[in-house]
Simulated scan of single mutants.
Amino acid sequence: MVVEDQVSGTIVNEEIPDATFESTEVDSGFRFFVENGFANKIRKSTSEDSIIRASFFSGMGQNLGLVEKTKIVAIHKNLNPSCSGKVRAQSFQVFAKAVADKRGGDANLKYAWYGASRDEICEILIHGFSWYRKAAGNIDCSRRCISLSPAKFSFDSVLSSEVDETGLRHLLLCRVILGKQEVVTDSNQFHPSSPEFDSGVDDLSAPRKYIVWSAYMNSHILPCYIISFEAPYLRDSKGLLEANTIQPRSPWMSFPKLISMLSRFLGPSDMASLNKQYADFQEKKITRPQLIQSVKEIAGNQLLAAVVNLYINEELQVSSSRRSSK
Protein backbone atom coordinates (compact mmCIF):
# COMPACT_ATOMS: atom_id res chain seq x y z
CA MET A 1 0.00 0.00 0.00
CA VAL A 2 2.85 2.38 0.78
CA VAL A 3 4.39 1.78 -2.63
CA GLU A 4 1.05 2.22 -4.39
CA ASP A 5 0.52 5.50 -2.56
CA GLN A 6 3.97 6.56 -3.73
CA VAL A 7 3.08 5.63 -7.29
CA SER A 8 -0.19 7.52 -7.35
CA GLY A 9 1.32 10.52 -5.63
CA THR A 10 4.76 10.48 -7.23
CA ILE A 11 5.04 8.95 -10.68
CA VAL A 12 1.72 10.27 -11.93
CA ASN A 13 2.17 13.90 -10.98
CA GLU A 14 5.61 14.47 -9.49
CA GLU A 15 9.25 13.50 -9.92
CA ILE A 16 10.50 9.99 -9.20
CA PRO A 17 13.07 10.38 -6.41
CA ASP A 18 16.64 9.36 -7.22
CA ALA A 19 18.12 6.46 -5.31
CA THR A 20 21.50 4.83 -5.01
CA PHE A 21 21.28 3.04 -8.31
CA GLU A 22 24.55 3.29 -10.19
CA SER A 23 26.17 0.05 -11.23
CA THR A 24 29.61 -0.36 -12.76
CA GLU A 25 28.60 -3.67 -14.32
CA VAL A 26 27.50 -3.67 -17.95
CA ASP A 27 25.22 -6.54 -18.90
CA SER A 28 26.07 -7.54 -22.48
CA GLY A 29 22.39 -8.07 -23.16
CA PHE A 30 21.75 -4.36 -22.64
CA ARG A 31 24.90 -2.94 -24.23
CA PHE A 32 22.80 -1.34 -27.00
CA PHE A 33 21.10 0.82 -24.34
CA VAL A 34 24.25 1.53 -22.34
CA GLU A 35 26.09 2.70 -25.45
CA ASN A 36 23.29 5.12 -26.27
CA GLY A 37 22.95 7.01 -23.03
CA PHE A 38 21.14 4.77 -20.57
CA ALA A 39 24.38 4.16 -18.74
CA ASN A 40 23.13 2.81 -15.45
CA LYS A 41 20.87 -0.05 -14.49
CA ILE A 42 18.83 0.75 -11.39
CA ARG A 43 19.44 -1.62 -8.53
CA LYS A 44 16.49 -3.64 -7.31
CA SER A 45 14.68 -2.75 -4.09
CA THR A 46 15.67 0.94 -4.18
CA SER A 47 12.81 3.44 -3.89
CA GLU A 48 13.31 4.44 -7.53
CA ASP A 49 13.08 0.83 -8.68
CA SER A 50 10.08 0.05 -6.45
CA ILE A 51 8.04 3.03 -7.63
CA ILE A 52 8.60 2.30 -11.32
CA ARG A 53 7.84 -1.40 -10.90
CA ALA A 54 4.68 -0.67 -8.93
CA SER A 55 3.47 1.76 -11.60
CA PHE A 56 4.23 -0.71 -14.38
CA PHE A 57 2.37 -3.59 -12.76
CA SER A 58 -0.57 -1.51 -11.51
CA GLY A 59 -0.99 -0.38 -15.13
CA MET A 60 -1.53 -3.98 -16.20
CA GLY A 61 -5.09 -3.78 -14.90
CA GLN A 62 -6.91 -6.04 -12.44
CA ASN A 63 -5.97 -9.28 -14.17
CA LEU A 64 -3.55 -11.01 -11.79
CA GLY A 65 -2.81 -13.63 -14.44
CA LEU A 66 -1.13 -11.04 -16.67
CA VAL A 67 0.91 -9.64 -13.80
CA GLU A 68 2.08 -13.09 -12.74
CA LYS A 69 3.21 -13.88 -16.28
CA THR A 70 5.15 -10.62 -16.72
CA LYS A 71 8.67 -10.17 -15.37
CA ILE A 72 10.72 -6.97 -15.34
CA VAL A 73 14.30 -7.94 -16.13
CA ALA A 74 16.00 -4.53 -15.93
CA ILE A 75 15.34 -0.80 -15.61
CA HIS A 76 17.88 1.60 -17.15
CA LYS A 77 17.97 5.31 -16.46
CA ASN A 78 18.76 8.03 -19.01
CA LEU A 79 21.61 10.19 -17.72
CA ASN A 80 21.87 12.16 -20.99
CA PRO A 81 25.68 11.86 -21.08
CA SER A 82 26.13 12.84 -24.74
CA CYS A 83 26.17 16.42 -26.00
CA SER A 84 22.92 15.93 -27.95
CA GLY A 85 21.32 14.25 -24.92
CA LYS A 86 22.21 17.19 -22.69
CA VAL A 87 20.81 19.62 -25.28
CA ARG A 88 17.52 17.67 -25.49
CA ALA A 89 17.20 17.61 -21.69
CA GLN A 90 17.91 21.34 -21.46
CA SER A 91 15.49 22.04 -24.29
CA PHE A 92 12.79 20.09 -22.47
CA GLN A 93 13.26 22.28 -19.38
CA VAL A 94 13.10 25.46 -21.48
CA PHE A 95 9.86 24.38 -23.14
CA ALA A 96 8.39 23.24 -19.82
CA LYS A 97 9.03 26.71 -18.40
CA ALA A 98 7.58 28.37 -21.52
CA VAL A 99 4.38 26.31 -21.34
CA ALA A 100 4.13 26.92 -17.58
CA ASP A 101 4.47 30.68 -18.11
CA LYS A 102 1.72 30.53 -20.75
CA ARG A 103 -0.56 28.37 -18.57
CA GLY A 104 -0.45 30.26 -15.31
CA GLY A 105 2.51 28.39 -13.84
CA ASP A 106 1.44 24.79 -14.64
CA ALA A 107 3.05 23.02 -17.60
CA ASN A 108 0.99 19.88 -16.80
CA LEU A 109 4.01 17.58 -16.67
CA LYS A 110 3.21 13.87 -16.59
CA TYR A 111 4.97 10.54 -16.83
CA ALA A 112 3.83 8.38 -19.76
CA TRP A 113 4.73 5.07 -21.41
CA TYR A 114 5.81 4.52 -25.00
CA GLY A 115 6.06 0.99 -26.43
CA ALA A 116 8.04 0.13 -29.56
CA SER A 117 10.64 -2.25 -30.94
CA ARG A 118 14.13 -2.25 -29.46
CA ASP A 119 15.48 -0.81 -32.74
CA GLU A 120 13.03 2.11 -32.66
CA ILE A 121 13.87 2.82 -29.02
CA CYS A 122 17.58 2.87 -29.89
CA GLU A 123 16.85 5.28 -32.74
CA ILE A 124 14.95 7.52 -30.32
CA LEU A 125 17.89 7.51 -27.92
CA ILE A 126 20.29 8.53 -30.67
CA HIS A 127 18.23 10.82 -32.87
CA GLY A 128 14.97 11.52 -31.06
CA PHE A 129 11.44 10.63 -32.16
CA SER A 130 10.89 10.30 -35.90
CA TRP A 131 8.15 11.47 -38.24
CA TYR A 132 8.02 7.91 -39.60
CA ARG A 133 7.21 4.54 -38.10
CA LYS A 134 7.22 0.95 -39.30
CA ALA A 135 3.72 -0.30 -40.08
CA ALA A 136 2.36 -3.67 -41.18
CA GLY A 137 4.52 -5.21 -43.88
CA ASN A 138 7.57 -3.27 -42.62
CA ILE A 139 6.42 -0.21 -44.58
CA ASP A 140 7.41 3.30 -43.54
CA CYS A 141 4.34 5.42 -42.73
CA SER A 142 4.32 9.10 -41.81
CA ARG A 143 2.59 10.01 -38.57
CA ARG A 144 1.00 13.19 -37.38
CA CYS A 145 1.51 12.60 -33.68
CA ILE A 146 3.12 10.51 -30.98
CA SER A 147 0.66 8.60 -28.80
CA LEU A 148 1.70 7.72 -25.25
CA SER A 149 -0.10 5.93 -22.42
CA PRO A 150 -0.68 7.54 -19.00
CA ALA A 151 1.43 6.17 -16.15
CA LYS A 152 -1.45 4.05 -14.84
CA PHE A 153 -2.11 2.35 -18.20
CA SER A 154 1.21 0.67 -18.98
CA PHE A 155 -0.56 -2.30 -20.61
CA ASP A 156 -1.70 -0.11 -23.51
CA SER A 157 1.96 0.52 -24.39
CA VAL A 158 2.96 -3.08 -23.65
CA LEU A 159 0.78 -4.04 -26.61
CA SER A 160 2.73 -1.63 -28.80
CA SER A 161 6.08 -3.16 -27.83
CA GLU A 162 7.84 -5.84 -29.89
CA VAL A 163 9.80 -8.86 -28.73
CA ASP A 164 13.52 -8.86 -29.62
CA GLU A 165 15.78 -11.82 -30.38
CA THR A 166 16.45 -12.34 -26.66
CA GLY A 167 12.73 -12.68 -25.87
CA LEU A 168 12.48 -9.28 -24.17
CA ARG A 169 10.21 -6.32 -24.79
CA HIS A 170 10.98 -2.70 -23.93
CA LEU A 171 9.04 0.39 -22.89
CA LEU A 172 10.17 3.98 -22.52
CA LEU A 173 8.96 5.84 -19.46
CA CYS A 174 8.97 9.47 -20.52
CA ARG A 175 8.37 12.87 -18.99
CA VAL A 176 5.82 14.73 -21.13
CA ILE A 177 4.79 18.39 -21.34
CA LEU A 178 1.03 18.33 -21.90
CA GLY A 179 -0.01 21.90 -21.10
CA LYS A 180 -3.65 22.52 -21.97
CA GLN A 181 -5.21 19.52 -23.69
CA GLU A 182 -7.98 19.16 -26.25
CA VAL A 183 -9.99 16.10 -27.21
CA VAL A 184 -8.85 14.82 -30.61
CA THR A 185 -11.47 13.22 -32.83
CA ASP A 186 -10.30 14.28 -36.31
CA SER A 187 -7.93 11.69 -37.79
CA ASN A 188 -6.50 14.34 -40.14
CA GLN A 189 -5.52 16.75 -37.37
CA PHE A 190 -1.76 17.25 -37.21
CA HIS A 191 -1.40 20.25 -34.91
CA PRO A 192 -3.40 21.95 -32.12
CA SER A 193 -6.73 23.26 -33.37
CA SER A 194 -5.80 26.68 -31.96
CA PRO A 195 -3.01 28.37 -29.95
CA GLU A 196 -5.19 27.75 -26.90
CA PHE A 197 -4.05 24.10 -26.76
CA ASP A 198 -0.68 22.36 -26.39
CA SER A 199 -1.49 18.64 -26.76
CA GLY A 200 -4.31 16.19 -27.40
CA VAL A 201 -6.10 13.50 -25.44
CA ASP A 202 -8.74 10.89 -26.18
CA ASP A 203 -10.82 11.76 -23.10
CA LEU A 204 -10.35 14.77 -20.82
CA SER A 205 -11.90 13.16 -17.73
CA ALA A 206 -10.31 9.69 -18.04
CA PRO A 207 -7.50 9.76 -20.64
CA ARG A 208 -5.91 6.60 -21.98
CA LYS A 209 -3.91 8.40 -24.67
CA TYR A 210 -1.73 11.47 -24.54
CA ILE A 211 -1.23 12.90 -28.03
CA VAL A 212 1.85 15.01 -28.73
CA TRP A 213 1.96 16.54 -32.20
CA SER A 214 4.94 15.67 -34.37
CA ALA A 215 6.13 19.28 -34.39
CA TYR A 216 6.59 19.05 -30.61
CA MET A 217 7.67 15.42 -30.24
CA ASN A 218 11.34 16.16 -29.53
CA SER A 219 10.78 19.22 -27.36
CA HIS A 220 7.82 18.03 -25.26
CA ILE A 221 8.83 14.38 -24.67
CA LEU A 222 11.91 13.40 -22.67
CA PRO A 223 12.80 9.66 -22.36
CA CYS A 224 13.76 8.96 -18.73
CA TYR A 225 13.84 5.18 -18.30
CA ILE A 226 13.79 1.96 -20.31
CA ILE A 227 11.88 -0.94 -18.76
CA SER A 228 12.91 -4.31 -20.21
CA PHE A 229 10.54 -7.18 -19.49
CA GLU A 230 9.35 -10.63 -20.45
CA ALA A 231 5.69 -11.06 -21.47
CA PRO A 232 5.24 -14.68 -22.62
CA TYR A 233 1.45 -14.37 -22.72
CA LEU A 234 1.74 -12.16 -25.82
CA ARG A 235 3.63 -14.89 -27.66
CA ASP A 236 1.27 -17.57 -26.38
CA SER A 237 -1.77 -15.68 -27.69
CA LYS A 238 -0.74 -15.57 -31.37
CA GLY A 239 -2.64 -18.73 -32.26
CA LEU A 240 -5.93 -17.25 -31.09
CA LEU A 241 -6.14 -14.89 -34.02
CA GLU A 242 -6.35 -17.51 -36.73
CA ALA A 243 -9.17 -19.36 -35.00
CA ASN A 244 -12.72 -18.07 -34.98
CA THR A 245 -12.06 -15.36 -32.41
CA ILE A 246 -12.45 -12.36 -34.70
CA GLN A 247 -15.35 -13.50 -36.84
CA PRO A 248 -18.16 -10.92 -36.81
CA ARG A 249 -20.51 -13.35 -35.09
CA SER A 250 -17.88 -15.13 -33.07
CA PRO A 251 -19.00 -16.70 -29.80
CA TRP A 252 -15.88 -15.12 -28.30
CA MET A 253 -15.89 -11.53 -29.53
CA SER A 254 -17.96 -9.41 -31.89
CA PHE A 255 -16.47 -6.89 -34.27
CA PRO A 256 -18.00 -3.90 -32.40
CA LYS A 257 -16.38 -5.15 -29.18
CA LEU A 258 -13.07 -5.73 -30.95
CA ILE A 259 -13.14 -2.22 -32.43
CA SER A 260 -14.02 -0.77 -29.03
CA MET A 261 -11.03 -2.47 -27.40
CA LEU A 262 -8.69 -1.52 -30.25
CA SER A 263 -9.63 2.13 -29.71
CA ARG A 264 -7.57 1.98 -26.50
CA PHE A 265 -4.39 1.35 -28.47
CA LEU A 266 -4.77 2.79 -31.99
CA GLY A 267 -4.45 6.43 -32.98
CA PRO A 268 -7.26 8.55 -34.45
CA SER A 269 -6.16 7.95 -38.06
CA ASP A 270 -6.07 4.16 -37.67
CA MET A 271 -9.42 4.15 -35.87
CA ALA A 272 -10.99 6.22 -38.63
CA SER A 273 -9.77 3.67 -41.19
CA LEU A 274 -11.01 0.80 -39.06
CA ASN A 275 -14.48 2.31 -38.60
CA LYS A 276 -14.73 3.00 -42.34
CA GLN A 277 -13.89 -0.62 -43.16
CA TYR A 278 -16.51 -1.87 -40.71
CA ALA A 279 -19.11 0.54 -42.15
CA ASP A 280 -18.29 -0.73 -45.65
CA PHE A 281 -18.78 -4.30 -44.40
CA GLN A 282 -22.16 -3.44 -42.88
CA GLU A 283 -23.21 -1.84 -46.17
CA LYS A 284 -22.01 -5.00 -48.00
CA LYS A 285 -19.38 -3.06 -49.95
CA ILE A 286 -16.71 -5.51 -48.82
CA THR A 287 -16.80 -9.16 -47.79
CA ARG A 288 -16.07 -10.65 -44.37
CA PRO A 289 -12.60 -11.94 -45.43
CA GLN A 290 -11.79 -8.50 -46.82
CA LEU A 291 -12.80 -6.88 -43.53
CA ILE A 292 -10.70 -9.32 -41.51
CA GLN A 293 -7.69 -8.68 -43.76
CA SER A 294 -8.14 -4.92 -43.40
CA VAL A 295 -8.32 -5.19 -39.61
CA LYS A 296 -5.10 -7.23 -39.60
CA GLU A 297 -3.33 -4.67 -41.80
CA ILE A 298 -4.45 -1.72 -39.68
CA ALA A 299 -3.92 -3.18 -36.20
CA GLY A 300 -1.32 -5.87 -36.86
CA ASN A 301 -1.58 -9.52 -35.87
CA GLN A 302 0.32 -9.07 -32.62
CA LEU A 303 -1.96 -6.34 -31.27
CA LEU A 304 -5.08 -8.23 -32.39
CA ALA A 305 -3.97 -11.43 -30.70
CA ALA A 306 -3.10 -9.59 -27.48
CA VAL A 307 -6.45 -7.77 -27.43
CA VAL A 308 -8.34 -11.01 -28.00
CA ASN A 309 -6.38 -12.66 -25.21
CA LEU A 310 -7.08 -9.72 -22.91
CA TYR A 311 -10.80 -9.92 -23.71
CA ILE A 312 -10.91 -13.66 -23.01
CA ASN A 313 -9.13 -13.15 -19.68
CA GLU A 314 -11.54 -10.38 -18.71
CA GLU A 315 -14.54 -12.56 -19.60
CA LEU A 316 -13.16 -15.47 -17.60
CA GLN A 317 -12.59 -13.17 -14.64
CA VAL A 318 -16.17 -11.86 -14.84
CA SER A 319 -17.54 -15.40 -15.05
CA SER A 320 -15.45 -16.46 -12.06
CA SER A 321 -16.69 -13.49 -10.04
CA ARG A 322 -20.29 -14.30 -10.88
CA ARG A 323 -19.87 -17.93 -9.81
CA SER A 324 -18.20 -16.97 -6.54
CA SER A 325 -20.98 -14.50 -5.71
CA LYS A 326 -23.68 -17.15 -6.02
Rank of each mutant, 00 (worst) to 15 (best):
I312Q: 14
P195A: 11
G115W: 07
N108L: 04
V26I: 11
L178H: 05
P248H: 07
P150N: 03
S82I: 02
L291Q: 04
I16H: 02
S325V: 04
S273R: 15
R322I: 15
I139Y: 06
E165M: 04
A74K: 03
I292V: 12
Y210A: 02
K102V: 00
L304F: 07
A89V: 00
Q93M: 03
V176A: 07
D156V: 13
N78H: 12
Q90V: 00
L262W: 12
C174D: 11
M60K: 04
N80Q: 04
S199Y: 07
R143H: 03
R322M: 11
A299Y: 07
P232D: 09
Y278V: 10
Q293V: 03
E196H: 12
S228M: 07
N13I: 11
S219C: 07
L304W: 07
W113S: 02
V318N: 11
D270F: 06
I121W: 08
V7S: 07
I221G: 04
R53Y: 00
R88D: 01
T287F: 01
G29L: 10
R249F: 13
N188F: 10
Q181C: 13
N108E: 14
K71A: 08
S194D: 13
H220W: 08
S55F: 03
E297R: 11
S325W: 02
E15I: 06
F197L: 06
Y311K: 08
A306I: 03
T20G: 12
C141Q: 13
Q277T: 07
R143C: 10
G59V: 09
Y216D: 15
G239K: 12
G105P: 02
N63L: 15
M261F: 11
Y216W: 05
E242S: 14
G167D: 08
P251V: 14
Y114A: 05
L159W: 00
A279T: 13
A243F: 13
G104Y: 01
H220N: 12
I259W: 03
S147W: 05
R144K: 15
V67T: 14
I246K: 08
G267W: 05
D270R: 09
S142W: 08
R288W: 01
G115M: 04
R288S: 08
F281M: 04
L316M: 13
D156P: 00
I227G: 01
L262D: 10
P289W: 08
N80I: 00
S228H: 02
L204K: 11
I126W: 00
A306P: 07
I146A: 06
G29S: 08
G9V: 06
F92Q: 03
S325C: 06
E25C: 01
T70E: 09
D186H: 05
K296C: 14
V94H: 07
S273W: 07
H191W: 06
I312S: 04
W131N: 13
C224R: 15
S160G: 04
